[in-house]
Nucleic acid binder design. Structure first.
Length: 206
DNA sequence: TCCGGCGAAGTGTTACATCA
DNA sequence: GTGATGTAACACTTCGCCGG
């Protein structure tokens, strides 16, 4: 049974964590209703000689060995716990508690690292967003300039056509002739569907 | 001396296994 | 099938030690 329980999968752990969190944030009285503080039994260890008030801080060697074991495997099977406890001259309960606390510290550290990573990524994204927004502004300015130029040329063409042009072709391919590009006029009349009229193309980019 | 941080240990809850 | 019981895990808390 022990090993089965030890093999709780991550989903179960997360589920329990969530439930526990829910319990403490929702079931336990929160603000305005001060929750009763749990009282610890005084000097329980002093009576059984295992965890007296003076018995604190594991030695450096003990911690080293515990750390080595934790490095290999964060979970502690009862067999390994007993073995470790006898090697360290500690109560198996102490070894279990040490692993419990070590897992909590490890998790906190991981959360901090994850937070730092996400924060850095967020800041990078903000910078990139600013850069892109600035680029969009520049492009809009360019577009405005282009539209003005087209408008200027259109007006110029209208002036010319109203004075001298009478054929359809010359009206629809107005100014190309001025630059010796008469043949290119056909390009603008490929098909009804492909034709983009006037300044519509520019709206595609706004 | 005081105070905050850290670590060992206590408490309450849940999930799961076992057994009567 | 079901309720009681035991165990291990977790989050949260308390408490003692230690260094600044």
């Amino acid at each position: 049974m022990t090993t089965t329980i030890m093999n709780h999968n991550k989903v179960d752990q997360d589920h329990m964590a969530l439930l526990s969190q829910l319990y403490y944030t929702q079931m336990v009285p929160q603000q305005g209703e001060p929750k009763p503080r749990r009282r610890r039994k005084k000097n329980k260890g002093a009576e059984n000689g295992v965890t007296g008030a003076k018995k604190r801080k594991l030695s450096a060697d003990q911690v080293n060995l515990l750390e080595m074991n934790f490095g290999n495997e964060h979970k502690l099977e009862s067999e390994r716990k007993d073995k470790l406890a006898s090697e360290l001259g500690l109560d198996p309960r102490q070894v279990a508690v040490w692993f419990q606390n070590r897992r909590a510290r490890w998790k906190n550290k991981k959360l901090e690292e994850e937070y730092t990573k996400l924060k850095t990524a967020h800041e990078t994204n903000i910078i990139e967003k600013c850069r892109l927004e600035s680029e969009v502004l520049k492009l809009k300015e360019k577009l405005l300039e282009a539209e003005k130029e087209i408008q200027r040329l259109t007006e110029k063409i209208d002036g010319v056509s109203s004075n001298s042009c009478s054929s359809t072709l010359s009206m629809n391919t107005p100014f190309l002739g001025e630059f010796g590009m008469e043949g290119i006029g056909d390009i603008f009349y490929m098909s009804e569907t492909n034709y983009i009229h006037g300044m519509e193309w520019s709206n595609l980019y706004v």
